[in-house]
Write a protein that binds this DNA or RNA. Structure first.
Lengths: 142, 142
DNA sequence: ATGCAAATGCAAATCGTTTGCAAAAAGAAA
DNA sequence: TTTCTTTTTGCAAACGATTTGCATTTGCAT
C-alpha cells in the first residue's frame, strides 16, 4: 500500500482488452490518474519526461488516442488551442473556460440538455454528440 | 442593374474603414455574399479560382481574417475540420451540424442563452463568448 | 500620369498531430 | 529464463490548416 492511486483503473482496463502495459504507458497513466486538471499532450509529455526522459511526444499522442478509443479519456478541442484531455470516469458535463487563465470549470445542466434534445428533434435530428463551451472571465465581486 | 447582389454590403463596409477594394477581394466578397452556406477557406478558394485563376489561397485566408476583424463574418471551428465562415449579418445563433453531410442548420434558443448566463454567473463568471454545437443525424421519419 | 502605402503571390515556416520505419521491449510459449 | 512473435517505441519526416517574409504588383489620392 503506497502509490496505488487509482481512480479509474486504467491499467486493468487496458490489460483486459489485450493491450500491453509498457513503461511509457505506465507513466502516462499515472500522470492521468493523478491529474484532475485538463492537460494537453505537451503538458503530459513534460511531466512524463521528468519521470523518464526517454519518453517521446509521439508516444504520448499515441497513448491518448488509444485511451480515447477505449473510452478511458475524453478529448476536448477548446477554442484556439491544442486538445486537452480528461478522465472519462464521471458522467457528462460541459465546460466553462477561463479565458484569462485557461482554467476549466465543469458544469452540467439537465435543463440545457433537454432543450438541446428538443431543438434537435424539432429539426428532425438526433443528437450524436454536442459541444457546449462557455468562455468567460471571472467577475470582480463574486 | 445586374449582378449587384448585396446582402451585407461588404465593399462599402471595407471602403469606409480605409481598406482597398482589390480584384481578389471583390471576387471573394462576391462569393461570400452569394453563399448562404458555411464554406471553408479551401471551398472559397476553389470558387474564386474559377473567376480569376491568379488568386492565391493565402489571400483568401488574409481576406477572411480581415473580414473577421471588421466584424463582417464569423469563423466557426466545428469539430475535426477546417474553419468555416458565414456572413455576420443576422443576430446570434448556434449550430446543428449534420455529421453525415457536413451541412449546417442554424438555431437559436433564448432559454438556453439565459441558462448559460445563469450558470456562468453562479460560478462567478461573465460569458465573453460561447460555443454550442449539436452534432446529429437526420431521423428517418420526421 | 506619379508615388507610395497597402495588398498580392509564392514559397517557406508554423503549430498540433500523425505516420513510416528500424530498433527495442512485452509477454506467451517452451 | 531463453526464445519467439508481436506490439510498442523513438526518431524523423510528413501532415493539414493556417500564417508569414519578401520581392513585386496594385489601388488610389495626388
Amino acid at each position: 500500500m503506497n502509490d496505488q492511486i487509482k481512480s479509474p483503473d486504467y491499467e486493468d482496463l487496458l490489460r483486459n482488452t489485450g493491450v500491453r502495459i509498457t513503461r511509457p504507458r505506465k507513466i502516462i497513466l499515472k500522470i492521468l490518474s493523478e491529474r484532475a486538471d485538463h492537460p494537453d499532450a505537451m503538458a503530459i509529455f513534460r511531466r512524463a519526461v521528468r519521470l523518464d526522459d526517454s519518453i517521446s511526444l509521439s508516444t504520448v499522442y499515441r497513448t491518448m488516442k488509444l485511451l480515447e478509443d477505449k473510452g478511458a479519456i475524453q478529448r476536448h478541442a477548446f477554442a484556439g488551442g491544442p486538445s486537452r484531455f480528461e478522465p472519462a470516469d464521471g458522467e457528462h458535463h460541459d465546460h466553462l473556460i477561463d479565458i484569462d487563465t485557461g482554467g476549466v470549470i465543469e458544469f452540467h445542466s439537465e435543463k440545457i440538455e433537454k432543450l438541446q434534445d428538443e431543438i434537435a428533434r424539432s429539426l428532425g435530428y438526433e443528437i450524436v454528440h454536442h459541444r457546449l463551451e462557455l468562455y468567460g472571465r471571472k467577475k470582480r465581486r463574486g
